[in-house]
Design a protein around this nucleic acid. Sequence first.
DNA 1: ATCGTTTTCGCAAACGTTTCCGATAGTGTT
DNA 2: AACACTATCGGAAACGTTTGCGAAAACGAT
Lengths: 393, 393
Amino acid sequence: MIKCVKCSLPDEVMKAGFVRGRQRYYCKSCEYHFTQERPAPNPAERRRRQATIADVAKQVGVALSTVSRALNGHSDISATTRQAILEVARQLDYQPNLLAQSLKSRATSTIGVVIPDIERPFFATAVSGIQQIATEAGYRVMICQSKESYQAEVSNVQALIASRVDGLLICHSRETENFDHVKDPARRGIPVVHFDRVCNEVNSAKVILDDRLGAYNVTEHLIEQGCRRIAILAGPPSLLISRQRQAGYLSALRRHGLPIEDALQVHIDFRTASAEACLDTWLAMPEPPDAIFAINYTNAFDLLLALKKRGLRVPEDMAIVGFGDEFLASLIEPGLTTVDLHPYRIGQQAASLFLEQMAQKENFVPRTCVIAGDLIIRQSSLKGHGHLAAWPA
Amino acid sequence: MIKCVKCSLPDEVMKAGFVRGRQRYYCKSCEYHFTQERPAPNPAERRRRQATIADVAKQVGVALSTVSRALNGHSDISATTRQAILEVARQLDYQPNLLAQSLKSRATSTIGVVIPDIERPFFATAVSGIQQIATEAGYRVMICQSKESYQAEVSNVQALIASRVDGLLICHSRETENFDHVKDPARRGIPVVHFDRVCNEVNSAKVILDDRLGAYNVTEHLIEQGCRRIAILAGPPSLLISRQRQAGYLSALRRHGLPIEDALQVHIDFRTASAEACLDTWLAMPEPPDAIFAINYTNAFDLLLALKKRGLRVPEDMAIVGFGDEFLASLIEPGLTTVDLHPYRIGQQAASLFLEQMAQKENFVPRTCVIAGDLIIRQSSLKGHGHLAAWPA
DNA sequence: ATCGTTTTCGCAAACGTTTCCGATAGTGTT
DNA sequence: AACACTATCGGAAACGTTTGCGAAAACGAT
């Protein structure tokens, strides 16, 4: 017979249900419910715990608050107790629990970054720029990749919000067309900064690069080199960068009074095969182009290789210019003329905008920073007709 | 005269100190201490707060525990209340606070990764591999860069511990010689996995790449191509990878009965200038080498360019092979023969080892995985004398 | 000795969850 | 009815910090 845990009288005990796998009893005399006790948890089971403020306090013989004050360098504490506490904390390998601190302070000192792909040099460098500024300001950085997937991007943003990041720096995936997931943190009062691929539906700070100007400059450079039939290998018309860079190209042609020819403007999907096919079409023309501006840097490489394969010389027979990723561009032969987009600077600027917003709080007015690209002239465009021909490669 | 906040009698009130900027009083009749009240905090000051479980509970009219059960899909709840709670949670844009959850559960579902530099393709790819496995298993990834600084590495590790990551994946900086900061998490019961640049002082799981075998293979390939005087452009002898790759090189030479010549083994500091200087020394020899194995991929590029500048043909006059970073290697002309180190696989393996350790808990025995590199043959080494000459580039 | 002041420290309430445990009301079953 | 059982729900204690506020002790000056 089961004995009551209070009066220890087995007589008055009766069964009273079965809950969550355990028998329940009721003692009539005590009017008390109780259940079979649970098997003791395996002591080896529970994970070794890290030292807490309570451990330190107990060992020193003071209150929790005193330990907290000692560790945080507060004033309300005597030098001797502070020393004793610090000593014990060191002994116990005490490391403050950031989770608890953040929960209490409602701030994590962490900013979330969402990028399409860390493997692309542009983003890796941008992240480095972000991290430099953030670290200097005492913030940690949490990086997420969307891998160009809208779904992944949304879940990344939600995870970052759930982690209560203090800010969100994002470059949208190529797929993203719905921006509700970014409006959300903004509504929650989390500062949002867009960079590179921005979104105009949200009233956020933005860092963009001047695609139009960059394309203008690189096209103008070709014109100065004596090129007269300049082709452009553009991307999908749906992409903003594609349209912007084409606009810069057209603007340069117009400015210098060159004819604009539809056959010399082709939109492709950035794949190598498409680039080669396009090149062949151009080469088969009665009057082929004397220069090609590839708005995507991998396509520029494709063209260089394809031309070499076809026995054509760069830049003598055909000048080639690209856009971005100047590190790779400097390695190949001939060196590829391109526009340095300063991804590091873009990252820095994005982080700075976040810091600015944190400092100004409510009265921050989101603004847009434009980072101008710099024309980097290398062998692939140096026809030697212009005044720039003497430049060092 | 100040009135007592309890009895409202001004007579018995006397001053009783001055604490933290505010006057303190004592009422004799009530035996009660009190201070001047603090100016009310600016209501606009306090940050907009995100909805919590309490907000949902209040609006629905149930207890906190009920809301928690509803949100977590627990069983002890009726379908109707669950629906009502979910509805209100949606209305209020409720997002669970991961900080609080982690604090309670003592687990963050986050793994910390420390790498030297995210801008290096090898690490960017490795991180991607880590992230894939981690994400699939429901873990988030927190990335830190040491930028090859020991100090930064230590502070990164401490920050990750403070954030209570569930695991630590680390590739040491070049500077790191003291490994106490990694022993620390291990002592705390945090699983540690080393990858690429490991540390043997800690009893952790490790993922390493087979430098020796890779170097052996690439050297043997050169021999098969008919090369007989193979030089090696090694790195600082202090670096383990440098010694390992040299060992593989020597082993291949010995295996094939080729003489080993000290003049053909040079240790440099990986800089471009050093590589060029070394090349010139070799070219000035009465009997120059017919192939060079550069253990660092950037040096391999340096050599390609330098040779071209000197009017020498690759691979006819000089074969060149590199090590790692096969993406870049495929872009240049001629394509660089190299060893694919499979950084993605290394990252995946590291993450898998962590998961394994989490699953097995106490009875996990740390083991070391070796990822073998694959020889990727391209133009730069194809002298056409061997049976591999027919391979597609 | 009295009283104002300063220094130092403890108590307890947050922060937002989860979860154990007990308490009901309802539902069948003898 | 009496009893056994199930389905729901609330209360409260954690998790590890920080911090406001009160209390006690020490100190100095009347």
